[in-house]
Design a protein around this nucleic acid. Structure first.
Length: 569
RNA sequence: GAGGGCGUAGCUCAGUCGGUAGAGCACCUGCCUUUUAAGCCGGUGGUCGUGGGUUCGAGUCCCACCGCCCUCACCA
């Protein structure tokens, strides 16, 4: 039947389709698969128990003296993985086999393996998944090698893997076919997600050790709230009810404070129907935590503690393979990219930096050693803008010279800009506070490279936030910035039900920065039962992973970032 | 949503002034018992993102559309 196929493609009639390149590769591999079946070999294997990871085999080999060019008959191993390189020397072959911990060279000798097994080997291709049993040795060049006495086919790959040296570099293909990205760009991509897992694990451990309870609250919410963002809307058929995908778990977690969960956290996937950028994905992960009897100063320590715990757990690790790095770096340089990416020294942890809390990020070296810098909003504004935040004429003048004023007045009417109630009042069409905030974004935020807590925001910028008891113009809030990027946001939480109720009313009326569809009356009811004073904190997990893996785009730390449908198949 | 860039073989990339579409890897035939991106001989493989247009002739020029990336806006 294979012959039929080949003949068909060899006789292109006028106007017929030429054989697609992909089909040629796949049909060749299908031919080999059928050859395996004809020889009584299942090309998709089955249970293959007691497989030893590469790192374990290498660790065992490290404590044994294996002379170069020798095999140790009593050093046996049983391993499995994907063939990433295949060197066929005639009656001898070397395969590089990759598992989750690294790569191992398999050596195959026709004489040792026997004709039947050698025939099986001849049907293998790059990308196939195999198991092997044999004895460990070292080749002439000292390479640790598993010399097979038995070869098992576990999965015949029908599609060829990407080019073996460059791997997959097309970013669109990398995101759409992440499974290929993961095995073909193993050293960079797999490592990022290994770290992501370790970071989340470390955060959990850190908080649980502090007596926190991890919870799950609704993703499908009849009323959304807790942040300023447009939601995704969905519908429950049987209940015939519109629901929102949560933009934040905040209002549910605070209900749990009322219920007596004094220390509570959730690692929550949130969904915001907003724009997409290298720092924004429509669905993203955040850790939110609430601690009774604490305040936002305590939350600064929690932020430092979580990051320190994360760095500790990802720090000490030798990268098993780094050879292909040079090629990746070159391709990025061709695009004129900044020096992001993982160098061998970075992958191995603390290489040459002196402090365990230092991490490279782009052209910066970030120092996460606690305590991080703590700076008041107004002080930073004075430092970088040279202005007092209450200096209305000065702020207006600077906003004009920076082009911010012009940009804002131009976009009045799109619903995002707050027009001053009485424009004539001070010769400005834009709220003073809006101008301050815009100037902060442009003049201050980009300079906040090293981890910095910006605290005591002007209350006018965050109208829904609890005020400082001694200075009502100050809001009890901080934001954590690293590399010019917002990493976290925290408050001394509002627990006065009447103030909360009033805030909701203003939100519904669209007066504040946030708007919402309807008031969450049940949340007010909860506060009426009494919520302990508390500190609350939200930290973006994806951004934290970006910072700790030197990743320039949020899409590089999310396994399957949202892509438009269509595109390359 | 606005502006800019990109899309050529399965993968990584060349393609000059508009004049028969190329290389490496991969794949196929053959050789090779210590390779390290193995090597050597020979060979196959293309709807140049899609659709229109200009032209004697379009990968190349023009228009529209699709997808990706970047900047801005919204947002975290």
């Amino acid at each position: 039947m294979h012959r039929d196929r080949r003949e068909r493609r060899c006789i292109p009639t006028a106007g017929s389709w030429m054989m697609a390149e992909t089909d040629r590769f796949m049909q060749e591999r299908e031919r080999k698969r059928e050859a395996l079946r004809a020889a009584g070999v299942d090309p998709y294997g089955g249970r293959f128990p007691d497989v030893e990871p590469t790192v374990d085999v290498r660790a065992r080999a490290d404590v044994v003296d294996i002379p170069v060019g020798q095999k140790l008959a009593d050093f046996t191993a049983r391993m499995a993985g994907r063939i990433t390189l295949l060197r066929d020397i005639g009656k001898l072959a070397f395969l590089t086999v990759q598992d989750r911990t690294g790569t191992m060279q398999f050596g195959l000798s026709k004489g040792d393996l026997g004709d039947a097994q050698w025939t099986v080997f001849k049907q293998l291709d790059l990308g196939d998944i195999i198991g092997g049993e044999g004895i460990i040795g070292r080749t002439k060049t000292g390479e640790l090698t598993l010399w097979l006495t038995r070869l098992t086919v576990l999965a015949k790959a029908l599609r060829p893997p990407p080019e073996k040296w460059h791997g997959l570099t097309d970013v669109e293909l990398r995101y759409r076919h992440r499974y290929v990205d993961l095995f073909s760009n193993r050293e960079e991509v797999y490592e990022v997600f290994r770290r992501r897992s370790a970071i989340i694990h470390a955060i959990r451990e850190y908080l649980v050790d502090l007596g926190y309870l991890e919870v799950d609250t609704p993703v499908l919410q009849p009323i959304y709230g807790g942040a300023a963002a447009r939601p995704f809307v969905t519908h429950h058929n049987t209940l015939d009810m519109d629901l929102f995908l949560r933009i934040s778990p905040e209002l549910y977690l605070k209900r749990l404070l009322v219920g007596g969960m004094e220390r509570v956290f959730e690692i929550s996937r949130n969904f915001r129907n907003e724009g997409i950028s290298p720092r924004h994905n429509p669905e993203f992960s955040m850790i939110e935590l609430y601690e009774a009897y604490a305040d936002y100063h305590v939350m600064m320590e929690r932020t430092e503690g979580m990051v320190a715990a994360a760095i500790e757990v990802i720090g000490n690790r030798e990268s098993p393979i780094v050879d292909r790095e040079a090629g990746i770096e070159q391709s990025r340089d061709r695009e004129g990219a900044v020096p992001f990416g993982k160098s061998p020294t970075e992958l191995s942890g603390f290489g040459g930096t002196g402090s365990a809390f230092q991490r490279p990020f782009g052209e910066h070296m970030l120092n996460f050693a606690p305590p991080w810098r703590r700076a008041k909003y107004a002080d930073l504004f004075r430092e970088h803008a040279g202005l007092d935040i209450k200096d209305k004429p000065g702020v207006l003048e600077r906003a004009k010279s920076e082009g911010i004023y012009q940009k804002l007045t131009k976009s009045i009417g799109d619903g995002h800009v707050h027009v001053k109630p009485d424009p004539a009042a001070e010769g400005s069409l834009i709220d003073h506070d809006v101008l301050v905030n815009e100037l902060f974004d442009v003049l201050v935020q980009p300079h906040l490279i090293q981890p910095t807590f910006v605290y005591d925001y002007p209350a006018s910028i965050c109208p829904l936030t609890r005020r400082h008891p001694e200075d009502p113009s100050i809001a009890l809030r901080f934001e954590a910035f690293v590399a010019g990027m917002e990493l976290g946001n925290a408050y001394t939480e509002l627990n006065d039900p009447r103030v909360q109720e009033e805030n909701f009313r203003r939100q519904v009326a669209g007066e504040g920065d946030e708007t919402m569809a309807v008031m969450d009356e049940d949340f007010v009811t909860a506060l009426e039962y009494g919520m302990p004073p508390a500190g609350g904190l939200g930290v973006g997990i994806d951004r934290m992973v970006m910072l700790l893996t030197n990743s320039r785009s949020i899409r590089d730390v999310i396994l399957f970032p949202l892509q438009r449908k269509g595109g390359v198949s």
